[in-house]
């Protein structure tokens, strides 16, 4: 797997915007097979406590979806966490594709 990932957290007035980028840094196209209609997920954690998860309260189509990421190309997924409580947190972004492309970033509100 030649995917590299990163996530950013940008606090706004009453929300935090997350952007998760997965880039194919290899020389060949990479196939990414998503397990469901969910492509990427975001969890906000405070130590061992999960405070918020983007996919909570939702369900998804259950067909596999394969996408090809060309060499040098990247794909970006974004979500926003509304009305956060002030504090220090970590966002954990994952690809729902079996591939290990987890990315983390610390942020404060």
């Amino acid at each position: 797997m030649t995917l590299e990932s990163s996530v950013t957290a940008t606090p706004d007035d009453d929300r935090v915007v997350f952007e998760y980028t997965v880039e194919n840094v290899g020389d060949a196209p990479e196939e990414v097979t998503f397990r469901s209609g969910l492509s990427a997920d975001f969890a906000v954690v405070d130590g061992d406590d999960e405070i918020w998860r983007a996919s909570d309260g939702q369900m998804f189509t259950q067909a596999l979806r394969t996408e090809t990421v060309d060499a040098g190309d990247s794909e970006t997924f974004s979500e926003s966490w509304d009305d956060p409580e002030p504090g220090e947190y970590t966002v954990v972004a994952t690809l729902n594709a079996g591939a290990d492309a987890e990315a983390r970033a610390e942020f404060s509100v």
Partner: peptide, 9 residues
């Protein structure tokens, strides 16, 4: 489900 294949409970 919406155009992304996502729906609320």
């Amino acid at each position: 489900l919406d155009s992304s294949g996502v729906g609320s409970f």
